[in-house]
């Protein structure tokens, strides 16, 4: 598990790629209870003017914290996690959408022994989450 005193601002703590397929969307719909059809039906996604079937924003948010939880060694250490949804992740019917999640130390709260981890999640060269930050209690 990471030691607070060994952390430095700007230090990268994790960087990982994930493949999101239609399969992933169905699995997440079942696990979360979010059955909005724009996340699995092309015709419905198109009828509401979307570029295609989109990953649930909450799926992208949920995946993006996993490398941070691995690094922290216990997800209970993540006491605050927030993101803005800035761009959709379009998931093709066959093949996959690849996202890359990189996390680094953004701030250190020495009084509370907490580190703010700033997360960058990108898809096709642009970031899809804004102000993605998690406070980790160490």
């Amino acid at each position: 598990m990471p030691k607070f005193t060994e952390l430095e601002i700007g230090q990268e703590v994790a960087c990982q790629k994930y493949q999101i397929t239609r399969d992933s969307l169905v699995r997440y719909a079942g696990a979360s209870g979010d059955f909005n059809p724009i996340h699995y039906r092309d015709d419905i996604a198109q009828s509401v003017g979307l570029p295609g079937v989109l990953a649930h924003g909450m799926l992208t948010m949920g995946i993006s914290i996993q490398p941070v939880a691995d690094w922290a060694g216990d997800s209970a250490k993540i006491v605050d996690y927030g993101v803005r949804f800035t761009k959709p992740v379009v998931v093709p019917a066959s093949g996959s959408a690849e996202i890359e999640v990189c996390a680094k130390v953004g701030a250190l709260d020495e009084e509370a022994n907490k580190a703010r981890i700033d997360i960058t999640t990108s898809f096709e060269g642009s970031t899809v989450l804004g102000k993605a930050q998690a406070w980790v209690q160490l």
Binding site: Y18, S24, R27, Y28, G30, A31, S32, L59, G62, I63, I65, Q66, A69, D70, S75
Partner: peptide, 15 residues
């Protein structure tokens, strides 16, 4: 249900 959610959000099996 937690395990199902972990798998859906691509956590490592150890989680």
């Amino acid at each position: 249900k937690i395990r199902e959610f972990l798998a859906a959000t691509m956590a490592k099996p150890a989680a």
